[in-house]
C-alpha cells in the first residue's frame, strides 16, 4: 500500500451529487476477485463510467475533461452497503486523497482512513454550496488542511472545521497504520488474555 503523509491539499474536485452511493457502485462485485490491492482504480464507478461493451459513458462526470482533481465530493451517506475495502482501494488507486460528504457509512469511512484517504464530513449547507461552486466553475479549488482540521471552499471563502480523532490524525500525518500500533502493544493483549482466564 502507498503510504503518503497527509498535510495540506489544495485541488479541484469531482462532484457526484447523489445520495446513498453504495460500495457496489464504487466497485461492482465482479471486480472483487483480485488477490492483490493494486489496479482497482480502473474499475472505480465502473458501471457508471463504461457501458456493457466497455465504451465510455460521456455524460458521466468522471469522463468529462472539464472535471479533475484529487478531491471527490459526494452526496449524503457515501459508501453505504458492503464492507469491501476494494472500494477504498479503488478511490485511492484512482488518485483521490480526500472524499467530502455530509455523511459517511461507518465501515467505508474506516476503510478510507486505513488507506490514507481522508473522509471529510461537512454540513449539508457547506456541501450544497460546494456543489453549486463546482457547477459554476469546474476548476474551483478546495483546500483541506489536516493539521488545522479545516476545509475551505476557495470560490466562496467559506471554511468549516471537521472532526477526526487525534490518534487517526497522527497516523495520517505520519503515514503510520494500526498494525504498527497494535504490534507495539502486545504486552497489553497478553495481559488481557491472562486476566480473562482468571
Amino acid at each position: 500500500m502507498k503510504r503518503e503523509k497527509f498535510d495540506i491539499i489544495t485541488d479541484s474536485c469531482i462532484p457526484l451529487p447523489l445520495e446513498n452511493i453504495d460500495t457496489d457502485q464504487i466497485v461492482p462485485a465482479r471486480f472483487l476477485k483480485a488477490t492483490t490491492r493494486e489496479g482497482f482504480g480502473e474499475n472505480l464507478f465502473r458501471d457508471w463510467r463504461f457501458d456493457k461493451d466497455g465504451n465510455r459513458i460521456e455524460s458521466f462526470v468522471m469522463n468529462n475533461p472539464a472535471y479533475s482533481g484529487r478531491i471527490l465530493v459526494a452526496g449524503k451517506n457515501f459508501g453505504c452497503g458492503s464492507s469491501r475495502e476494494h472500494a477504498a482501494w479503488a478511490i485511492a488507486d484512482y488518485g483521490f486523497r480526500v472524499v467530502v460528504s455530509s455523511f459517511f457509512a461507518d465501515i467505508h469511512k474506516n476503510n478510507e482512513l486505513n488507506n490514507f484517504v481522508l473522509p471529510v464530513v461537512v454540513s449539508e449547507e457547506f456541501l450544497s454550496e460546494l456543489f453549486e461552486s463546482i457547477d459554476k466553475d469546474p476548476k474551483c479549488q478546495v483546500t483541506v488542511n489536516l493539521p488545522q482540521q479545516t476545509i475551505t471552499n476557495n470560490a466562496t471563502g467559506k471554511s468549516e472545521h471537521f472532526e477526526i480523532n487525534g490518534y487517526k490524525k497522527h497516523c495520517l500525518m505520519h503515514a503510520l497504520d494500526d498494525i504498527d500500533f497494535l504490534l507495539s502493544n502486545k504486552d497489553k493483549i497478553e495481559e488481557y488474555e491472562q486476566n480473562k482466564q482468571k
Binding site: A88, N165, D178, F181
Partner: peptide, 22 residues
Amino acid sequence: FGIGTSEVGMVMASQCILQQKP
C-alpha cells in the same frame, strides 16, 4: 460487526481491532 481488509489484517496480527465505540 463487519470490517475492512486492513482491519482483518489487524485482527490476524493482534487478535484486536481499533474501533470507536458506537
